[in-house]
Amino acid sequence: MEQIILEIQANGLNQYHHIDEFPVTIGRAYDNDIILSDRSISAHHVIIECSEQGKLVFHNLSNENGTILNSKKLDNCPTKGGIPSILNLGHIQLRIVSPSTRVETTYRNECDHIFCAMGQHMWSAVLLFFTMGVLLLERYLETPYARDALYYFTLGFPYLIGILISTLFFATISRLTVHRWHFLSIMSIITLLILFSQFLSNIGHSLNYFFSSNTPLEISAQISYFILPLLLIFFFTKKIYRTNIPMTLGIAFVISFFYSLPYTLELIDSLNIEEEYAANSTNTPPYNKTLSSLDIRVQSSLSVDEFIQETQEKLSQEVREHLIANAD
């Protein structure tokens, strides 16, 4: 008589039954040997027997959702199956393995990476306060009026609530899937995303002035909308949940997709607008408007006459090209 392990797959933590006595009945009714409470399971769903040759034999009893053995739907005749096998009953998936099946190596729960440190109370709190500080500093810099602390507090409060709510959202997903909250780590990754975005936008702005061009900020914006969330979520998931690379990539793409969705729509919109109304999207020409108190720049100053002459030549040439392009 063969001994088998019946693995009932659930999100995060699976259930295991040692089975050494046959037949074993599986179903939702309470007189079964193994009871599965899911509504897609019939009262008496399947019976597993062991033949005289020691082979497993499956009897499907379910008329509702039936039984699938190794991707093959069973009829009402007894069917033989080997070990390991995968059994699908309604919405539930079961795996039949031998007790001698090797398990994966145990990982050491050590803080050997930055994401682990971010899961600690002190570091996540430091990160949260630092991020809030940066956000409030931004608001302070763009307010040329005398305002009291309460004003900045009311400005900062929505950010704090936003961070906490999104943390709770992702922590709940984490709890439902892998039975761990990872609240602090998730909060830290969200604050890191905000911090890096701010950092990139400031770098972009300074480079815009440095080169008198709009391109650096455009590039840094695309990075912080699309690449940054993908990378952060990828490494976070890989390190914290220790998932394999295809799965990590999948998770990173799905979550960052939702984050990037508004920017994606905006990008598509702007591309369309550029095609349809390029000349007149707002009557605002796309010149570089950045100003900087530090005044660090590549270009040296021209005299008025030099500038006028250069502009006359450059713009006459460019507009001629526009007109020719249109005539074609």
């Binding site: 763009e142 008198s212 349809e276 109304y277 390029a278 000349a279 007149n280 707002t282 009557n283 605002t284 020409p285 796309p286 010149y287 570089n288 408007k289 100003l291 720049r297 270009q299 040296s300 100053s301 021209l302 005299s303 008025v304 500038f307 250069e310 502009t311 450059k314 713009l315 460019e318 507009v319 526009h322 007109l323 249109n326």
Partner: peptide, 27 residues
């Protein structure tokens, strides 16, 4: 924030070409 300028016009692409601009530092 104050450093912005635009034309007040309802011209559209069939009337006019795209803008060409030259930005420089001038004394």
């Amino acid at each position: 924030y104050l450093n912005t300028s635009n034309l007040v016009s309802d011209a559209n692409q069939s009337d006019i070409t795209n803008f060409s601009c030259n930005t420089r530092f001038v004394n």
